[in-house]
Design a protein around this nucleic acid. Sequence first.
DNA 1: CGTCGTCTGGGACAGTTGTCCCACTTCGGC
DNA 2: GCCGAAGTGGGACAACTGTCCCAGACGACG
Lengths: 202, 202
Amino acid sequence: MSRIPATERRAALAHAALAVISRDGLAAATTRAIVAEAGMPLASFHYAVASRDELLRDVVELVVAEEGVAALAPLLAKAGSIREAAKLALSGYLEFVRRDPGHEQAMFELTQYALRTPGLSDLPAEQYARYHALATELLDAATAQLHPDWSVPMPDLARLLVSFTDGLTLAWLADRDDAAAARSIDLAAVAIAGFAREKVRA
Amino acid sequence: MSRIPATERRAALAHAALAVISRDGLAAATTRAIVAEAGMPLASFHYAVASRDELLRDVVELVVAEEGVAALAPLLAKAGSIREAAKLALSGYLEFVRRDPGHEQAMFELTQYALRTPGLSDLPAEQYARYHALATELLDAATAQLHPDWSVPMPDLARLLVSFTDGLTLAWLADRDDAAAARSIDLAAVAIAGFAREKVRA
DNA sequence: CGTCGTCTGGGACAGTTGTCCCACTTCGGC
DNA sequence: GCCGAAGTGGGACAACTGTCCCAGACGACG
């Protein structure tokens, strides 16, 4: 084990923890499993971080700091309407979930655990504030491209969008029904487009 | 401890387990915590049930068997439109969540745990099939009362409805923002009503 | 070149967990 | 009334957990 400053070790541990949680679940993310994933001796754990819960706090913040939906923005470029844009973005998101279901499961597990843990109960609010901000950015990008008039406030629509993606994900994780998920997305796209008054296109 | 047949003890343990999970979370639902909640000696646990995971299976099935949204149907009686009906039902549901947040958290925790646990991975699909069936019943009740024509298949709309309630619940659990949740419900109600062509009323 | 703070890693600790065993008591059917 | 089956409950076990300690090694700065 080469010499690594504590702050770097801390970051490495957070990444390792996220990997373990994605693969095996939060319950399996013991201190020993995390250091094994990171290739460190056990003692490095409490040298780099005060407690397991504090490391989990790092994990949530790591997740929140990630780009997230930035990868979806390019999809909008192909869209000629709000409905199409919504469908492409939601389909792209579901594809992302399908590619690594464990990652999204990890998000849910972390949120639920944080809600139950005294020292971490403030995290979920941050987490969802970030989600809502990301959704707003995506809606802004679509607006900049298609110039619709929205009949509802953008933050409210963003929250609706996040709620729907969460629910879509939970249902798909539970029954893995691709076709049903696709139909849900179609409906949601129509519903979202219903809040936009689009300008006529050439 | 009076003499109780094993099957009754098993049911009592499932109820006790649900109580513990709702109050303290799934991680706190140890065999000892569950039997303490049920007022039984520890040994009764493995006499009534083969393992902890099998008991959790019982808990999920207990939950799935429960009425659930039946209490929301009466709310529809006051509604004069689909939009109003949706708003009343969703508000009623959120009120239910607000009254006992731990219960809904327990649902999410159980689903996630089951997905990760080899012997229980079939449960979430059942669970969500039940949710979708319940949502369909509620939509049917609204249809019977207001006689709209729906532009989309009822099962698809039911799945959308469940997805939205899940997402609504997750977001509210995270930030406890009542006002934002109410605005989400308003938007969702409009969106749902958008799929209905309502007959003119007198 | 020495020394002091930073980092390493092996080992150990106490607490908790799921599960099991065994001696005991109670009940229903003969 | 008796006896086998069903139910009870105290105690124990091995495994695993988060956390901590301590002796040693390294590297930068004087």
